[in-house]
């Protein structure tokens, strides 16, 4: 997994392109790389882009909540973007959607 494919840094906003399946195997990998980036840069916001994601388990919850806890200490925020029905269900059951902003798959602009 190359860093370039998964992470996008724009100013102080880090976007994490979540892969199709976010389980323990990939969550560990993303956590390690994300921590490296967070140590090297002043990140104020982390956006998880779930646009490609069709599967997520509680390891994904651990990843999102881990980033939330870290960035919250310095007043930053975490968002979940392009979350489809499945991802929203997982975020809801685990209570994560109560503490971070969840933006659904399609947001219609008029």
């Amino acid at each position: 997994m190359e860093k370039g494919e998964l992470f996008q840094l724009k100013g102080s906003i880090l976007t994490i392109k979540v892969p199709a399946e976010l389980d323990h195997h990939l969550a560990d990998e993303i956590r390690r790389q994300s921590e490296e980036i967070q140590n090297e840069h002043n990140i104020r916001q982390i956006d998880f882009d779930f646009g490609q994601t069709t599967f997520m388990d509680s390891s994904g919850i651990g990843l999102v909540m881990g980033r939330f806890r870290e960035i919250q200490l310095t007043g930053g925020t975490v968002r979940a973007l392009h979350a489809n029905e499945r991802v929203r269900k997982i975020l809801k059951i685990s209570g994560v959607s109560r503490v971070i902003e969840v933006v659904p798959e399609k947001t219609w602009k008029i």
């Binding site: 560990d28 956590r31 509680s58 919850i61 990843l63 909540m65 881990g66 059951i93 685990s94």
Partner: peptide
């Protein structure tokens, strides 16, 4: 420390 959410069994039940 491994960022486990503690939701594993809760998800299985749900």
């Amino acid at each position: 420390e491994l960022e486990r959410s503690g939701m594993g069994f809760a998800f299985m039940e749900a």
